[in-house]
């Protein structure tokens, strides 16, 4: 199970890097979003998958799953959500001001 997830992480990362390297700003942002999904899956896989029941008292199980990676992911998701929201607004504002969402053209603006 972990192996499959790791492959999935690899595929997601590859897709994200492909998007990050493109010229369109919106694709770069989508790339960062996929990148964060990839790493969340990685953290999940690192904690071990399906190793026991939920870590609650009274479950009386043989083994319990490690709850920490899930707590970490929850935090990381919130943060990446905030950052993605910010960069979307930033991109829209930059598009309004600079009149382009092409990163190459943006570099050429020299009117300061």
């Amino acid at each position: 199970m972990e192996t499959i997830i790791i492959f999935l992480v690899g595929i997601l990362t590859a897709v994200a890097i492909y998007l990050l390297l493109s010229k369109s700003l919106i694709r770069v942002i989508l790339g960062t979003a996929i990148l964060s999904h990839a790493v969340h899956l990685l953290i999940l896989a690192m904690g071990g998958l399906k190793e026991g029941t939920v870590p609650l008292l009274g479950e009386e199980a043989e083994s319990y799953v490690d709850a920490l990676p899930q707590a970490l992911i929850l935090t990381a998701i919130v943060i990446s959500f905030a950052v993605t929201a910010f960069i979307l607004v930033l991109a829209y504002r930059a598009y309004q001001e600079l009149g382009t969402d092409d990163l190459d053209e943006m570099r050429g603006v020299n009117d300061e």
Partner: peptide, 23 residues
């Protein structure tokens, strides 16, 4: 705005590396 886009994207990528290293 132009510099901020660079700065934000670079920091998102480096935060990603941070999470990978933590994992």
């Amino acid at each position: 705005l132009r510099e901020a886009i660079k700065y934000v994207v670079i920091n998102i990528v480096s935060s990603w590396f941070f999470l990978v290293a933590l994992a």
